[in-house]
Measured scan of single mutants.
Amino acid sequence: MQIFVKTLTGKTITSEVEPSDTIENVKAKIQDKEGIPPDQQRLIFAGKQLEDGRTLSDYNIQKESTLHLVLR
């Protein structure tokens, strides 16, 4: 499924993921596309910071959901 990751600069990254993918996994995909190390990434969805060990389905993230990427 496709999800969108919006950066603070307003850029939107499209990523191909599975509901069973972990947040860590998603951060790795963002690193592949943007070159941002996962340890600098914080992903936010519905006002919550997403934890690395959890999966997209844990957070009820569905296709075409938009996550927000904040850098630390």
Rank of each mutant, 00 (worst) to 15 (best):
M1T: 03
M1F: 15
Q2M: 14
Q2G: 06
Q2I: 15
I3P: 01
I3K: 00
I3C: 02
I3M: 02
F4Y: 12
F4L: 06
F4E: 03
F4K: 06
F4H: 09
F4N: 05
V5M: 04
V5W: 03
V5P: 00
K6T: 10
K6S: 07
K6H: 10
T7N: 05
T7Q: 06
T7V: 08
T7M: 15
T7W: 14
T7D: 07
T7G: 06
L8S: 13
L8Y: 13
L8H: 14
T9H: 12
T9W: 15
T9E: 12
G10R: 03
G10D: 04
G10I: 02
G10K: 04
G10P: 00
G10E: 03
G10C: 05
G10W: 03
G10Q: 03
K11P: 04
K11V: 09
K11T: 08
T12H: 06
T12D: 03
T12E: 04
T12M: 12
I13P: 02
I13Y: 10
T14S: 09
T14W: 08
S15F: 15
S15P: 09
S15R: 06
S15E: 13
E16D: 11
E16T: 12
E16M: 13
E16K: 09
E16Y: 14
V17Y: 06
V17M: 05
V17I: 05
V17Q: 05
P19D: 06
P19H: 07
S20H: 12
S20C: 07
S20K: 07
D21M: 11
D21K: 02
D21V: 03
T22S: 07
T22D: 03
T22N: 04
T22C: 03
T22K: 08
T22R: 08
T22M: 06
I23F: 02
I23T: 04
I23G: 00
I23Q: 01
I23D: 02
E24Q: 12
E24F: 14
E24N: 08
E24W: 15
E24R: 14
E24T: 08
N25I: 14
V26D: 00
V26M: 05
V26H: 00
V26P: 02
K27M: 13
K27V: 05
K27S: 02
K27H: 02
K27Q: 03
K27W: 05
K27E: 01
A28W: 12
A28I: 13
A28F: 12
K29S: 08
K29T: 07
K29Q: 11
K29P: 01
K29H: 09
I30E: 01
I30M: 03
I30V: 05
I30G: 00
I30T: 02
I30N: 01
I30K: 00
I30S: 02
Q31S: 12
Q31R: 14
D32W: 09
D32E: 13
D32A: 14
K33G: 07
K33M: 13
K33I: 14
K33H: 09
E34K: 05
E34D: 05
E34G: 06
G35N: 07
G35E: 04
G35R: 05
G35P: 03
G35Q: 05
I36E: 02
I36V: 07
I36M: 05
P37W: 07
P37M: 08
P37Q: 07
P37N: 08
P37S: 09
P38D: 05
P38N: 07
D39Y: 11
D39S: 13
Q40F: 09
Q40V: 11
Q40E: 10
Q41A: 07
Q41I: 14
Q41F: 15
Q41P: 02
R42D: 11
R42A: 11
R42E: 13
R42Y: 13
R42N: 13
L43C: 01
L43R: 00
L43P: 01
I44K: 04
I44M: 12
I44D: 04
I44H: 10
I44A: 05
F45V: 02
F45M: 04
F45N: 02
F45R: 01
F45T: 01
A46T: 05
A46Y: 09
A46R: 14
A46Q: 14
K48Y: 10
K48S: 08
K48P: 01
K48N: 09
Q49T: 14
Q49G: 06
Q49N: 11
Q49K: 08
L50W: 02
E51F: 07
E51Q: 10
E51G: 04
E51C: 08
E51L: 09
D52Y: 03
D52P: 06
D52C: 05
D52A: 05
D52I: 04
D52L: 04
G53L: 07
G53W: 14
G53Q: 12
R54C: 10
R54Q: 09
R54M: 12
R54E: 04
T55P: 05
T55N: 04
L56F: 04
L56I: 10
L56P: 00
S57A: 13
S57N: 10
S57R: 12
S57Q: 13
S57G: 11
S57C: 04
D58V: 03
D58C: 03
D58P: 00
D58W: 12
D58G: 03
D58I: 03
Y59P: 01
Y59D: 01
Y59H: 03
N60H: 09
N60V: 03
I61W: 01
I61Y: 00
I61L: 03
I61S: 01
I61E: 02
Q62C: 05
Q62K: 12
K63M: 10
K63R: 11
K63I: 06
K63E: 12
E64A: 10
E64S: 11
E64T: 07
S65P: 02
S65N: 10
T66H: 13
T66Y: 07
T66K: 04
T66N: 04
T66D: 03
T66M: 11
L67C: 15
L67D: 00
L67Q: 01
L67N: 00
H68S: 08
H68A: 05
H68D: 07
L69F: 03
L69C: 03
L69G: 00
V70W: 10
V70L: 13
V70K: 08
V70N: 05
V70F: 13
L71S: 08
L71E: 07
L71N: 08
R72F: 12
R72S: 12
R72P: 10
R72I: 15
R72A: 13
